[in-house]
C-alpha cells in the first residue's frame, strides 16, 4: 500500500513539469504581444522595446522558462504585467468564491443526486426512473447561461426573492452571502446533478445484479440496508471518480457562471488574463489548476484504497 501511495505521489512531479512547460510554450508561442497591450495607443517601436526589456520579454524563450520555473520553485509565481501585483496575491484573492461555489455545488448536487440515482436504479423503468433519465438528458444538454438567465428572471427579477448578482464579504453577513450563492449554485448543480445521478444509477444497477446482493436479500436484510451498505458502497468507485473530476473542474473556474453572476473567482481571472495576455497570471492559474487536478486524482486514488480493498493487493 505504501508503494502504491508513493508511486502515485511521485507521478505528480513529471505531470506538473509537463503542465508547466506546455502552458508556458502555449502562451509564449501563441499570437499576442503583452508589450503592445501595455503600451496601448502609443506603441512606438522604442516604447515596445522598453516595455519588453522591463519585463524580460525580449529574452530567449528557454531563458524565460527557466527563470520562471526557478521562481515557481521558490513559491513566487511572478507579478501581473498590467497591475504589477503579485500573482499569488491575485489568485489568493479569487480562490474563496471559487472554492465556496465548488463546495456548495458539490454538496448540494450530491445530496440530491445520490438518492435520486439510487431510487432510479431501485425502481428501474418506473416513473421515477423515467423522470430522472429525462432530467439527466435535459440537465446535461441545456447550456449554463440559459439556466442562469431563467433562474434570474424568475427568482430575482419577477419574484424578487434573491439577489441578481455579486459576492458580498462574508464578514458583512453570512446569510447575505448564502443568499447571493443560491442562484449560482442552482445553475451549476443542474448539469452536475444530472451527471452524478446517471453515474449513481448505472453503477448501482451493475452492483445490484451481482450475487452478493441477491444473497443479502435472501438473508432478509431490509431493502434500504441492501442499497446503502451493499449497493452504494460497492458502487462508490465510479461515483467518487466522477465527483473528484467535477470538483477539479469547478475549482479550475466556471467561467460562464462566474461571469453571469459576477462572482470574482478564478474563472474570470483566467479569462481576463488570457485576453490581456498577462502571461504570469495565466501561467500561475493553469499551474495551480493542474496541481488541483493531479492532487484530486491522487485523493481519489487513495479513496479507492478505502472503498475497494482489492486495489491494495494489486
Amino acid at each position: 500500500m505504501t508503494g502504491f501511495v508513493m508511486r502515485r505521489i511521485m507521478m505528480v512531479f513529471p505531470v506538473m513539469g509537463f503542465v508547466a512547460l506546455f502552458v508556458f510554450l502555449l502562451l509564449h508561442l501563441g499570437p499576442g504581444d503583452p508589450a503592445a497591450i501595455i503600451a496601448g495607443d502609443h506603441a512606438t517601436p522604442e516604447k515596445l522595446a522598453e516595455i519588453r526589456a522591463a519585463h524580460n520579454l525580449d529574452q530567449p524563450i528557454p531563458w524565460q522558462f527557466m527563470t520562471w520555473i526557478a521562481h515557481v520553485l521558490h513559491g513566487d509565481l511572478g507579478t501581473s504585467l498590467l497591475s504589477g501585483l503579485p500573482v499569488t496575491t491575485l489568485i489568493a484573492s479569487r480562490l474563496e468564491p471559487t472554492l465556496v461555489l465548488a463546495f456548495l455545488t458539490l454538496a448540494f448536487s450530491t445530496a440530491v443526486a445520490l438518492p435520486l440515482g439510487a431510487l432510479a436504479a431501485c425502481k428501474r423503468d418506473g416513473i421515477i426512473d423515467k423522470l430522472a433519465t429525462g432530467y439527466c438528458v435535459l440537465g446535461t444538454s441545456v447550456p449554463f447561461f440559459v439556466v442562469a438567465y431563467f433562474l434570474v428572471l424568475v427568482f430575482a427579477i419577477e419574484l424578487r426573492l434573491l439577489p441578481v448578482q455579486g459576492y458580498p464579504d462574508a464578514a458583512d453577513g453570512f446569510g447575505n452571502l448564502l443568499l447571493h450563492l443560491v442562484l449560482p449554485v442552482a445553475t451549476l448543480s443542474v448539469p452536475v446533478i444530472a451527471l452524478v445521478t446517471r453515474t449513481v444509477k448505472t453503477a448501482l444497477l451493475d452492483v445490484l445484479s451481482e450475487d452478493h446482493v441477491r444473497t443479502a436479500r435472501a438473508k432478509g436484510i431490509s431493502e434500504a440496508s441492501v442499497i446503502v451498505f451493499h449497493g452504494l458502497r460497492n458502487a462508490a468507485l465510479p461515483i467518487v471518480t466522477v465527483l473528484g473530476n467535477i470538483f477539479a473542474l469547478l475549482i479550475g473556474g466556471v467561467v460562464v457562471t462566474e461571469s453571469i453572476f459576477n462572482l470574482p473567482g478564478i474563472g474570470r481571472l483566467t479569462v481576463d488574463a488570457v485576453l490581456a495576455r498577462d502571461y504570469p497570471i495565466v501561467q500561475g492559474i493553469i499551474l495551480l489548476a493542474g496541481a488541483a487536478h493531479v492532487l484530486l486524482n491522487l485523493a481519489v486514488d487513495l479513496l479507492y484504497l478505502k472503498f475497494d480493498p482489492r486495489v491494495r493487493y494489486q
Binding site: Y149, I157, V164, Q165, I260, N262
Partner: peptide
C-alpha cells in the same frame, strides 16, 4: 460586471 444583461438586471433590482 462582465455580463451586460446582468448589468441591466442588477440596475433594475
Amino acid at each position: 460586471m462582465p455580463d451586460a444583461k446582468m448589468q441591466v438586471n442588477a440596475l433594475r433590482a
